[in-house]
Every structure is written in structure tokens, then in C-alpha cells.
Design a binder for these strands. Sequence first.
DNA 1: TTTTAATGTTAGATGAATCTAACTTAATTA
DNA 2: TAATTAAGTTAGATTCATCTAACATTAAAA
Lengths: 236, 236
Amino acid sequence: MLTFTEENYIKALLKLTEEVGVEAVGTNELAAHLGVKPATVTDMLKRLKEKQLVSYEKYGKVSLSVSGRSLAIDVLRKHRLWETFLCRCLGFPWHQVHEIAEQLEHIQSNELMDRLDAFLGFPQIDPHGDLIPSKDGVFQVKPKRTLSMLAATQSAVLIGVGDNSAAFLQYVDAVGLQLGSEILVKRIQPYDALIEIEINGKTSQVSQKFADQIFVDTPPQRDEISDVGLDVEGDL
Amino acid sequence: MLTFTEENYIKALLKLTEEVGVEAVGTNELAAHLGVKPATVTDMLKRLKEKQLVSYEKYGKVSLSVSGRSLAIDVLRKHRLWETFLCRCLGFPWHQVHEIAEQLEHIQSNELMDRLDAFLGFPQIDPHGDLIPSKDGVFQVKPKRTLSMLAATQSAVLIGVGDNSAAFLQYVDAVGLQLGSEILVKRIQPYDALIEIEINGKTSQVSQKFADQIFVDTPPQRDEISDVGLDVEGDL
DNA sequence: TTTTAATGTTAGATGAATCTAACTTAATTA
DNA sequence: TAATTAAGTTAGATTCATCTAACATTAAAA
Ligand SMILES: [Mn+2]
Ligand SMILES: [Mn+2]
Ligand SMILES: [Mn+2]
Ligand SMILES: [Mn+2]
């Protein structure tokens, strides 16, 4: 049985490695992410290593062990299921759910999560468009296309965000965006790289920094369609 | 902001005083109820007094302060609202919800509880028949009539239980009882005081100890009705 | 290659929550 | 009233999670 704090450390490790696509992280980075001092992290890493949740040698980088990863994924699953409940059932706006889910994710009861999962109809994605790990711990981050990668005249659909902070999410709301919104890139200012976008007829200017955190799905292009066609043939 | 542990101490104090109808309790009793040693309680009482949550002098009995009581009631409210959610929405049997609610009651978010309350339709009683304190902290325990107070041939309706342990509740299930069940006292054994009851045509023998924990409502008697009649006249 | 900067660790301290063992006070009983 | 028992407190220790300040190692720059 892990403590709250231990759960938070391994969850942070999961975020800082797999969601970024990096093998291992350093003490300072972990400390910054958790809002504690590096010395505190060093101490905790010794305990986590003792419990075989991480692989770590002093002055080296840290990464999750197999069992540590699996426990971290379970915490993430709980977090995202609770967020889904808070939005869908209780009507919370998406910018408020993260903070409350930070507490709820530590409730210990497998049966509770199984029942909540069923109650919600086994949701696949959470209110921020993030994948909910399955019960058997399958979890994989697929590379994401961002709004900042689009060229002028292209359009795309909002499928997720890279920043779950209330400040960012409320900014997204203000621009008129929500999951599923269609975004048209009207043009990109050559001078300051501001992106002019249109959502439901409303035009806005957004920064590159903002656009980096907006994950989009682009409608299938002509040559992508033929690729899919080939794959299907191969499956027969 | 109280810690988990502090919340558990004041909740225990609320139970041990108001639910029993007693002014104050001793260190040993509190310790036994919380599953810790008396020395630990003494320490904690000093901290709770520091925070003005209890009135306490050493070698004396403890009781909640006004603000301590109000915080304790809020914890109890959360506990019972969560229990209601677990039963009504997630389909948990009543004997499993207490343990999970012991964790959920410490989640900090007033808005969460307001929304959950609304989602559940502002329930008045929890799955064990206990009153859910209202949002503004109104909470009063009304004296309860127990099955053990009934005489032979009397019948009554199950409205609550005095013991929330899984063991007891599963026993209640086994006897065929649930909230709202009608119970007929067939006779009381003169020799060992066992009570013979009938529920939905099924007969069982239960002990006095068991019957003490079964709260019932008796259908209005003839003379009680006339009493009510007099009261109503006085109100006009 | 030496110096410097960045990164990470140790030692020692603190506060919360718990324990055991020894002591003190209050209540009961003889 | 004096002795005994029950109830409660203190002192000292432990574990977890955190800090600061001082020290050590590794990486980058000069
Ligand atoms: Mn979140
Ligand atoms: Mn999320
Ligand atoms: Mn309960
Ligand atoms: Mn209850």
C-alpha cells in the first residue's frame, strides 16, 4: 500500500517520462514538477527504490520500474475516471476537475473504480481529451499533432489540450473552443507568428505558445485515405 | 484546514457525545473508538485545543467547541452523502459503503458536495437510515425506538440501524431485513429473551443484542392519534 | 585542461502522528 | 481514611515528509 505522497511521485515520473517520450528524469526536474526541494526528492527516491518502484542510482537519472509504472498508471486511470464523473455527472466545467481529481485519485478501492467505470459507460477519454488507461493497465501515449503545426487555410478538430491548468483551460473557453470544435487557420502573421483562427464564425488571434498546447485531428487527406485502403487490403 | 486525522478525532467526538446523549468523553473512550492508545489522544487533544476545536483541561473530559462541532457535522454530512451516492448510483450493498466513505469524507471541496447533493436530489437519509446533516449544519439526533422495546404481537417498520459494521449489516441482510421492511414480533422467549420475528412471512429468532441495534417506527396507536389531534387543535 | 555552473546528495532540524514505559491523578472500595 | 484500581499524562523514541545549509559530482565553457 502506497502513501499519498508516494503515489504522487510515481505519477509525476510517469508524466515526465512517457508523456514527453523520455527515458529518465533528474532530481531537479521532479522537484520542480512536485513543488518540493531537490533534497526532498533525493530522500524519497531512496524510499521508492527500497520498495522497488523505481530504478535509481545516486547522481543518475530515475525511471519507473515495471511495478512502479503499473501502479502509476492505475493512479492516472483513477484521476481521469474521476474527472469524467465530475464533468459528466456533476456538471463541473473542465477547468475545475483536475484539482479535485488530485484528491480523489488516492481513494483506495478497486471495486469503487470498477463500478464508477461501468456507471460512466467505460469512457475512453477524459474531459481534456486524454486517454483513460484501461483496467488491465494498457496505456500508451500517441504522438499528437498541435494547432501550431497547421498551415494557413487548413482546418482541424480539437481533440485535446497539453495543459490542464485552470488558467489555460479558461483561456481556451474564452476563445470559444471545446473538444470537437472545428478550427480553421485563416493565416499566420509573418511578423510575430500570431495565428488567426476561426471557430464557429468567430475569429481570434492566438500565440504559438497557446497553439502548442492545442491538440488537433486533421480530416483525412487524399493520400492518407489511399494508405488506409492498402492496409485494409493487407488485413484480408 | 484540518488534517485527515484531526477530522477523524472531531467526528469521533461528535459520535461519542451527541449520538449517545452525553456531554463529554474521556481519553480512553476516544482512544478505544479510534483504535489508538490513550497517550496518542492526550497529545492530539492539546493540538485540537490549540486550534480551539475542543474544550479540554487535563485530567478532565473533552467536548467539541462550537466551531469544532460545526466542522465535525460537515464531515458527517460528506460521509453520508457519499454513502448515498455509493449505494444509489454505483449499486454498492449497504455493508460496503461505510469503509469507502471513511476515505471520501476527507475530500476538500464545498462545491463538490453541493453538486453531489443536488445530483442525488438532496437526500434526507443515508443508506443506513441516518439523517444527513443539512448544508447549514443543522443536525440533531432524535431518540430512537428499538426492536427490543416492542412487545409480542406488535409490528413496526425498520427505519435504521445502530451499528454500521459490515458484519452486522450482512446479518441484517440474512434475516431478510432492509429499510422499510415490516417486522412483526411474534413472541419473546421467557427463558432466554430471544425475539421471534416475522418478515415477509419468514420467521427468525434474534437476540436482544441484535434487537438493540434495530431502529423501528411503530404505526400510530389509537391514543397517540388523539394526542396528535389535541396538538393540532392547540395550533389553530 | 582547468574553471565554473548546474545538478544532486548529506547532515541536521522540524512537525505530525503514532508508540511504549513510567509516572501521576482521580475514583472506588475496603 | 487508607489502599487499590482505573483513568490520564509525560518522556522519549520512531516514521514520514518536508526544509535549509553545506558539501560533492558531473557537465559545460573558457
Ligand atoms: Mn487532470
Ligand atoms: Mn484530465
Ligand atoms: Mn458510515
Ligand atoms: Mn451511514
